[in-house]
Amino acid sequence: MIWQLDLILVFLAVIAAVAAITVRDLLSAVMILGAFSFFMCMIWTQMGGLDVAFTEACVGAGITTAFFIATLYNTTRRTKD
């Protein structure tokens, strides 16, 4: 476990999480949420939890992003609040 790499990945994951809830465009929010899932996947990989990382990569970054985009297709792209 390399603590410098861990620190960089946690930093990037926090940035992605904060950006996903502050950005106004919902499609951008979905994409940044996928990036957050991928950073979490990398954090788990370098912690040694390969099975959790694999699940996060295919469910969090793959299928959930497709579900969110399919939902956005039926709503407006701009947020109101």
Binding site: L50, D51, F54, T55, V59, G62, I63
Partner: peptide, 20 residues
């Protein structure tokens, strides 16, 4: 690492790609 759940998700992603 892997198994039924992850394999099923990857397979579903392939079908979603066809649908898109």
């Amino acid at each position: 690492p892997g198994g039924g759940f992850q394999g099923g998700c990857v397979m579903a992603a392939a079908f979603v790609l066809i649908f898109i």
